[in-house]
């Protein structure tokens, strides 16, 4: 096989994997542990970042459940929908559809202990597949209350 053919095959394989990611149903639970460590951000780091007056704030999207968001969410964050469900994943895709692919985005959920979160890895995978490269995921070990709200980091309530 020529070098040119191998390159073409590699490109095709990459394209197929992206299409599979974009169109994969959300029913299968993707473990949060599948998110690369390099793409995680700790709560303290994000809180400092959001409170820094000079740096532009990233777009922070909550990809969990509405009732949890309504009670408390990161100040300035938006509700994007539970990405572990088909509708939520669709809503997330629509929210970012018009954004430049170099937009800095932080995803978070915090509905459950990290290993059991049904949303976060699905959201991460979708945005990666859509081409977002400045993407971070907030590492919430226990839940949003324990690891963010009770630490005194900025929260808001309501829709």
């Amino acid at each position: 096989m020529s070098k040119q053919s191998r390159s073409l095959l590699t490109a095709l394989a990459g394209l197929v994997s992206i299409l599979v990611c974009v169109q994969a149903p959300a029913a299968t639970h993707l473990p949060a542990s599948s998110i690369p460590h390099a793409d995680l951000i700790q709560p303290a780091e994000l809180a400092a970042r959001l409170q820094a007056p000079s740096a532009p704030a990233p777009l922070v999207l909550q990809v969990g459940f509405k009732l949890l968001f309504t009670q408390s969410h990161i100040t300035g964050s938006e509700f994007a929908g539970p990405a572990g469900q088909g509708d939520g994943l669709e809503a997330l895709g629509q929210r970012v559809a018009q954004l430049p692919r170099d937009t800095e985005i932080v995803l978070y959920c915090g509905c459950c202990p990290w290993a059991h979160c049904p949303n976060i890895a699905a959201a991460y995978r979708r945005l990666r597949a859509l081409g977002f490269r400045h993407l971070k995921v907030l590492y919430i070990a226990h839940d949003f209350g324990t690891d963010w709200a009770e630490k005194g980091y900025p929260v808001s309530t309501g829709q």
Partner: peptide, 10 residues
């Protein structure tokens, strides 16, 4: 949820 301090994780 508010009555019980906020149910911010399960």
């Amino acid at each position: 949820g508010q009555l019980y301090g906020g149910i911010l994780g399960l």
